[in-house]
Computed example of a mutant assay.
Amino acid sequence: MPTSNFLPEDYVSQRAEHRSNTIGLALFIVIMVAVVAAFLVTNQQWNTVKQEQQRINVAYSDAARQIETLNEMESQKRQILERAEVTAALVERVPRSILLAELINRMPPPMSLMSVELHSIRIKTPPPQKAKKSEGATTVLSIKDKANQRIPTRSEEDDARAVEVPKYTVAMTIIGFAPTDVHVSDYLRGLTDCSLFQAIQLKYSRETSVGDQLLRKFEIDMELNPNADAKGFEPLKLRRGLKGGIDPTPINPLPISPEMTGVKLGDETPSDGPHGSEEVKQ
């Protein structure tokens, strides 16, 4: 059954248009509120990000200052260690009195030493070789490459100016006389047992006459152990000729005088290194 509408058509159309405008305005307000809320939330997040960035920048600045301080301390430590190494290289870690005591205490009683020579051989390390550029090759750096070139730090500059620590090899030459080769062999075995010496070699042992006696003249070459240190070394202790606390007449060495061998005792060679004369060894 058809329904009858007694309202005017103009009123109905105006009412529908009013309803549409109301709905559209409500939707517009909702959208604007959502946009404003999103803007406020985003702005708050950006503020938080900026504050975090500032905090991180401050932390990085503090860390950079601490790293710079640490690098300076490392550079000072390296300089102190280099100075200590230079000083240690120039100081005798094994006094000559201990060397002579070991040479004498490990010598068989009927043996005599005529000369003991010490001379330092400086080991010169070659400088590091730089990479050679090929002939005719040119290097062109762009502005970006020049900007990205790293400036050397203070520690790297200190390494470039580092002082070379001198290293020495102390060589020894011993010349003496013994009754037989057995005594020379015993002496070589005693020197080998001593931790102060290394590279012990018998250069020669030949028969020679001194007055009315036939003796063996020998020469021994050896080196001082570079790791030897008198602080942790226990020298060989002997009581020569002591019986019952009585000191008898000392044992007389072989009847050899300096005039017989042509060797002058008591002469000293000018000392340039830590032990005796200095030579340079590549």
Rank of each mutant, 00 (worst) to 15 (best):
S134E: 11
V86H: 06
S155V: 05
I98P: 05
V91L: 13
A59G: 00
L196N: 07
V33F: 13
L265S: 05
K217Q: 15
I200V: 15
Y60Q: 15
S13M: 07
W46M: 04
E135Y: 07
K130G: 12
V210D: 01
K203Y: 00
K130M: 08
L25I: 06
D186G: 10
G232W: 13
V91I: 13
L196D: 06
M114S: 14
D193L: 13
V36H: 06
P179W: 01
Q282K: 13
L254I: 08
N57T: 10
K264T: 08
A16C: 00
D212C: 00
E72M: 04
S61R: 10
S277M: 07
E85K: 13
L236N: 05
P166T: 12
T249S: 10
A178W: 03
P128K: 13
K130L: 10
T169N: 09
V94D: 06
L214M: 11
V165P: 04
E102G: 12
P152R: 15
F177W: 10
E207W: 01
K77Q: 12
S4F: 14
H18C: 00
L202T: 05
G24V: 09
D212T: 07
A147R: 13
G211W: 04
Q129P: 00
Y187I: 07
D158L: 09
L100A: 11
S20T: 02
R239L: 12
S209I: 15
K50M: 06
F177N: 02
M114G: 09
D221C: 02
Q213M: 13
V86L: 08
A59R: 07
T192F: 04
I98T: 14
I251R: 09
L103Q: 07
V163P: 00
R106E: 03
A64R: 14
S205D: 05
N47K: 15
P95I: 06
K217D: 03
T87K: 12
E279K: 14
R189N: 11
K124Y: 01
K243I: 14
R78A: 15
E9L: 14
S97Q: 07
K237N: 03
G190H: 05
L100N: 11
